[in-house]
């Protein structure tokens, strides 16, 4: 039998009692995320996929500069990688909660932290932080790629397009909005995954919710198409990337991001309620 040091010293206990429980939960969840190798890979993957997609799209773009050619939106084009990068962030968000259910470890988690909504909030805080970092890097990479490659695709200053630059208010809004978009997607997915609890089903539902409404919108005509694009998380949220006015735009940039925020809030609220009322 080894010797035991006994419980923490009384003054420590007293001090801890005064600190909020949620900060310990945040640290615990942070330790969990940090000690899973997949977290690092998925964050790196998000950046790589986002910037890589933008690079491929930029390389494949050849814009004709005729007088009747439609005006392009270089900033939105540079941020196209987010379309695909969000899938990786979504997987990270799903794994944050579903892997615990898959292994049955959620019972250990809830034994250590019986306040379930605090656990969900702690996961949300960590996911927000990680997505913020990955999103900032990915968006910066996209804008840099756009600035370097788009002039070669017929979208340079010689063609009447400004270089992609954060000095433009609209570009700054699109960039910051894209990072916020990724964070809101992560939170939306976290809520869905908490409600569903199964990894495979969650990934399927989440990717379907993100990618299928735009496809459905293509298949139907107005006004259904318009309404779909206004309320679907991806099409509404990505409105924040638009920097040139276009008749195809169905919702204002910040309003679109607001719709996505409502999705995320609704999803997290539902998840919090379900987490509280269901047996673990």
């Amino acid at each position: 039998m080894s010797t035991q040091t006994g419980p923490p010293r009384p003054h420590t206990v007293l001090r801890d009692e005064l600190r909020p429980a949620w900060s310990a939960a945040v640290r615990a969840e942070w330790t969990k995320l940090r000690t899973l190798p997949s977290t690092t890979w998925l964050l790196a993957g998000t950046v790589a996929v986002t910037v890589g997609t933008t690079a491929i799209i930029a390389a494949a773009t050849h814009t004709s500069t005729g007088p009747d050619a439609a005006r392009q939106d270089p900033t939105k084009l540079a941020l196209t990688g987010i379309d695909l990068g969000q899938a990786i962030i979504a997987v990270l968000a799903v794994l944050t909660v579903c892997e615990e259910y898959g292994a049955g470890m959620i019972r250990i988690t809830l034994t250590a932290m019986p306040r379930r909504t605090v656990v969900l909030a702690a996961k949300a805080v960590n996911l927000t932080g990680l997505t913020l970092i990955a999103g900032l890097v990915a968006v910066a990479g996209c804008l840099m790629t756009g600035r370097l490659m788009l002039p070669g695709a017929g979208l340079g200053t010689a063609d009447g397009y400004p270089l992609v630059s954060l000095a433009h208010t609209a570009t700054l809004r699109a960039a910051a909005g894209s990072v916020l978009y990724l964070i809101l997607i992560a939170l939306l997915v976290l809520g869905i995954a908490t409600a569903i609890r199964d990894t495979a089903v969650s990934v399927g539902v989440v990717l379907a919710l993100l990618y299928l409404p735009p496809l459905l919108a293509q298949a139907v005509s107005d006004p259904l198409r318009r309404h779909l694009e206004q309320i679907a998380p991806m099409t509404a949220g990505l409105a924040v990337q638009v920097t040139t006015s276009s008749p195809a735009q169905v919702i204002a940039p910040w309003a679109g991001l607001g719709i996505l925020a409502m999705w995320a809030a609704g999803s997290l609220t539902t998840a919090g309620v379900l987490l509280r009322i269901r047996d673990a």
């Binding site: 801890d16 600190r19 310990a24 939960a25 640290r27 615990a28 969840e29 942070w30 330790t31 969990k32 000690t35 899973l36 190798p37 997949s38 892997e99 615990e100 292994a103 049955g104 470890m105 019972r107 250990i108 250590a112 932290m113």
Partner: peptide
């Protein structure tokens, strides 16, 4: 038996320790 397979035993205890300060 419910452990996330890719996390080490030490790190499993570490997150639990963090949750209890």
């Amino acid at each position: 038996a419910a452990l996330q397979p890719s996390r080490t035993g030490r790190n499993h205890l570490l997150w639990l320790a963090r949750s209890q300060r």
